[in-house]
């Protein structure tokens, strides 16, 4: 399964970036082989709608699940439309740990109800 995680550094052992839309990097990992690659998040400098642009990036990479610190309401809407499962990293110290927690069923999954009012992931 292909999973993407927002990270502060372009490494699998990097801390998880708490912000989905403007997280610094995305690490894409294939869970069967644990092969991974890191990409700079193209949405980082977006004047607005970073969450949407980031969601589009995730959708283009055909990830099935995405892990981040939190997801703003538009990012949530966009990822729901794209059919990508959203998970909160919680206390995971790194992207690698977050994936392990996800596989063990320990991460909180976001449901379909619209995220609360925030305009931006603050």
């Amino acid at each position: 399964m292909r999973i993407m995680i927002t990270t502060t550094k372009p490494e699998f052992d990097s801390p998880v970036d708490p912000n989905f839309g403007r997280g610094a990097y995305f690490v894409v990992v294939e869970t069967n082989s644990m092969e991974w690659q890191a990409y700079p998040n193209p949405a980082v400098g977006a004047p607005g709608g970073a969450g949407i642009q980031a969601a589009q990036f995730v959708s283009e990479h055909k990830a099935e699940r995405v892990i981040s610190g939190d997801f703003g309401p538009k990012a949530h809407q966009a990822l729901m439309a794209a059919g990508v499962g959203m998970y909160l990293a919680g206390a995971s110290a790194s992207a690698r740990q977050a994936v392990a927690h996800l596989e063990a069923g320990e991460l909180e999954r976001l449901g379909g109800s619209p995220r609360q009012g925030s305009k931006s992931g603050n």
């Binding site: 949405a43 607005g48 949407i52 969601a55 959708s59 966009a78 990822l79 439309a81």
Partner: peptide, 14 residues
């Protein structure tokens, strides 16, 4: 302004 995105099979407007 990222008010349009291709997500899944269609275009979403924000």
């Amino acid at each position: 302004f990222n008010a349009l995105a291709i997500l899944g099979s269609g275009v979403q407007v924000f």
